[in-house]
């Protein structure tokens, strides 16, 4: 290979960055920047949403039946710990070289983070608050929806912020099986050393992560004004 990749990339001279972007933004073919951006969004958002949707009932059940929590958390942590490549290889035999093969492990990662967040969030409801809800005549379901879940929201949202950013960044690993979203820009640059795709890939991924995080912070402010008020005091 000779010189390291980065040296070659930089030695490439002043990047014709804008020109490259303009040429590759929307070619109408698979692999345009726009196309990859769309893929990236799908492969990162689906695990975030699916992770939340699955972690909520699992977390509720774990909080209700404590014995369930450790085994459940254990399963997702083990999957989290497995290296991506063997996981992909395992899944390819079922789902092929598709987006689903990337989405499934990322959903597991999301659950690994969100399950403890939901359980801790419910655990953050002070006992006297729960007791007084019972004493006032809330039915269990109403108590969950109107008292316990709202109080758990700040902790769950903190977990969701971690999940959103890591999920957006981890999608690039899918490039290993040709499904990396914007991550494909990196492999492409490796095969054909050229700086602009790398820059565009990094900038777009970071920008996506920042936007997602910003939206979640905004949601936090709207959903939990009582937490904001507490900080301000």
């Amino acid at each position: 290979m000779g010189e390291p990749l980065l040296v070659r990339l930089i030695a490439d001279g002043p990047p014709s960055l804008w020109e490259w972007i303009a040429r590759n933004w929307d070619t109408g073919r698979v692999g345009s920047i726009k196309d990859l951006l769309g893929d990236h969004l799908v492969m990162s958002l689906v695990p975030i949403v699916a992770g939340l949707v699955l972690a909520l009932p699992l977390g509720l059940a774990s909080a209700r039946w404590r014995w369930l929590y450790q085994p459940a958390a254990g399963v997702f942590n083990v999957v989290y710990a497995l290296p991506s490549l063997p996981v992909f290889m395992l899944l390819i035999s079922v789902t092929g070289l598709s987006k689903t093969t990337v989405i499934i492990p990322l959903t597991f990662y999301a659950i690994a983070v969100l399950l403890p967040a939901v359980v801790d969030g419910l655990g953050s409801v002070p006992d006297h608050v729960r007791q007084s809800a019972v004493a006032m005549g809330f039915t269990p379901l109403r108590r969950l929806v109107q008292v316990e879940l709202p109080i758990a929201v700040p902790v769950v949202l903190a977990g969701l912020r971690v999940v959103a950013v890591s999920s957006i960044s981890l999608v690039s690993v899918g490039a290993l099986i040709g499904q990396g979203g914007l991550g494909m820009l990196f492999t492409r640059a490796y095969q054909n050393p050229f700086l602009p795709p790398v820059v565009v890939g990094i900038v777009l991924i970071v920008a996506l992560a920042l936007v997602a995080d910003g939206l979640l912070v905004l949601a936090q402010r709207l959903l939990t004004p009582w937490v904001r008020a507490r900080r301000a005091s």
Partner: peptide, 10 residues
């Protein structure tokens, strides 16, 4: 009750 048990989010 002693700690009032008010709902912090309301």
């Amino acid at each position: 009750i002693q700690q009032a048990g008010l709902f912090p989010h309301k």
